Amino acid sequence: MRTPLETSAVGATAGLPPKGPAQLLFWRLFIINGLLFAIGTLVLALSPATVSSPVLLTEVPVLLIGLALILAANAALVRASLAPLDALTTVMRRVGLLRRGGDRAPEAGNGDLEHLIRTFNEMLDRLEAENSASSALALAAQEGERQRISRELHDQIGQSLTVALLSLKRVVDRSPDELREESLVAQAAVRASLEEVRQVAQRLRPGVLADLGLRSALSSLGSEFSRSSGIPVVWELDDDLPDLSGEVELVLYRIAQEALTNVARHAHATRVDFALTSTPEGLTLRILDDGTGGEFREGAGIRGMRERALLIGAELTVAARPSGGTDVRLVVPGVGARS
């Protein structure tokens, strides 16, 4: 028995290139047409029908009927052979690499096209794996950069503003009456800038997530959202959430953060329902608003949410609600132990 390598060598020596799907498809169509013409020739040879020279008018219908039968049989056989390509084309048009286990073409049909479709599905699997790995590296670098900027804001700019605020306090205490009002305005502006810097640093690196856990971090996020946007948040957080890894907690926090940011920017909502619950499907994060909703295009924000969901094998759906508004739903089918 020859090994695959020996078989390849024999084929190369004989000058026979390996047959790919295109070559197999060519031979399939060639054989179909050859068989049809052979059958047509055999029928003409064995039938009592004859063709005069020149062709008589009474013989024209017979020839046309025979030609029509051959063409119809050829069209039916070729169409049946190429039918799986329609399904493959449909999947190619709608496939997306940011959806876990996305569309796959059904591996049906004759052997050569089935091999082609299977190869296409395997290519999608590889692309999804490579895209997930690339996204993981990019998001890890992004989180590292967020932490660096957060530290610099807190340690450098925050401390500088604190020093400036203390200096302004001494200036206000010593300033004459005609300059006191301007000094107080400057002091208030520096205090507001310091508070903004602290909020930005907290959004970049949620220290409460590492210190107090996911529930406290989400509650703090919702409180800050309500305070800045004026939109009330109705909470539903399970008391007995399963133990989560640090990566899963960070993904849940970032997706909730981005969803609330989208509500504040685009939804024109008057209420947000926020739920983190354990369901038979897995851990489910759901954020619903009563805003405008409707048709929307997925921008960089939603794309980033999908990339983060892929990192933990979660399924993210963003859809318009029938009553108006948007429904963001993240399902984590499996969770790991806390790292």
Rank of each mutant, 00 (worst) to 15 (best):
R2Q: 06
T3P: 02
T7W: 12
T7Y: 08
S8G: 10
T13I: 15
T13K: 11
P17T: 13
P17H: 04
A22N: 07
Q23F: 11
L24I: 06
F26K: 10
F26P: 11
R28D: 10
F30G: 14
T41A: 10
A45M: 13
L46A: 09
V55W: 14
L57R: 13
P61W: 00
L67C: 08
L71S: 05
L71W: 02
A72V: 12
A75G: 10
S81D: 15
D86V: 12
L88I: 05
T89N: 14
V95T: 14
R100T: 15
A108Y: 02
G111D: 11
D112Q: 08
E114G: 14
T119S: 15
E122Y: 10
L124P: 12
E128Q: 15
A129K: 10
S132E: 14
A133Y: 07
A136D: 06
A138K: 05
A140E: 12
A141V: 03
E143K: 06
R146L: 00
R148P: 00
I157G: 00
L161Y: 05
T162V: 07
A164Q: 12
R170W: 13
R174W: 09
E181M: 08
R191A: 14
A192W: 07
E195D: 11
E196N: 06
V200C: 02
L218A: 01
S220F: 14
G222S: 02
E224S: 13
S229I: 03
G230F: 00
W235E: 04
W235I: 05
L237I: 11
D238K: 04
D243G: 15
L250E: 03
L252H: 05
I255V: 13
A259N: 06
T261M: 08
A264G: 07
H268W: 12
H268K: 15
D273A: 12
F274D: 00
S278L: 13
P280N: 02
G282V: 01
T284Q: 10
I287R: 03
A300P: 04
G301V: 07
I302Y: 02
M305F: 05
A309L: 01
G313S: 02
A314I: 02
L316V: 05
R321M: 08
P322G: 11
T326V: 12
D327R: 08
A337I: 05
R338L: 12
S339I: 11
